[in-house]
């Protein structure tokens, strides 16, 4: 293996605890190794962030006849970071009707990402 095949492909700042270790994803030949983490939880996090970064999406949906014009919502599981924009576009097209209860599924299995969009609060009728 030549020296030049070793390179830092990504620097990931660990957010699991306030120490904020800088973890490097290094490609060595065909392998990826991680360096710079101070504990196992950090390594877990770095792997997830490197291979399949996911986020909980939190936003709002328009409501008809509600006490308020919007209801806050979230995905019940983290979804792929790369698909957040698409999911937001989908949500922007949706309108729900009051009343809504916290936990109600407002969009089922959004974009087939294996996650439901649920209401974050109760919202009564106007």
């Amino acid at each position: 293996m030549s020296e030049s095949s070793v390179s830092v492909v990504k620097v990931i700042r660990c957010i699991v605890c306030p120490t904020g270790c800088q973890i490097q994803a290094i490609s060595k030949g065909s392998d990826i190794v991680f360096e710079g983490y101070a504990c196992e939880r950090g390594l877990e996090y770095a792997k997830q962030e490197f291979y399949e970064p996911k986020r909980i999406l939190t936003t709002t949906i328009r409501v008809e006849d509600g006490f308020l014009p919007l209801i806050p919502v979230r995905t019940d599981k983290p979804i792929l970071k790369d698909r957040l924009r698409e999911a937001l576009n989908e949500i922007a097209k949706t309108v729900v009707k009051a009343p809504v209860k916290m936990g109600d599924i407002l969009i089922e299995n959004i974009l087939d990402l294996d996650s439901n969009l649920i209401a974050s609060r109760d919202l009564v009728k106007k």
Binding site: I56, T58, P72, R74, M102, S120, R121, D122
Partner: peptide, 13 residues
Amino acid sequence: EELTGPEYVQRFI
């Protein structure tokens, strides 16, 4: 559990 702000207070409400 990791909740949003509204979910957190809804439990108290």
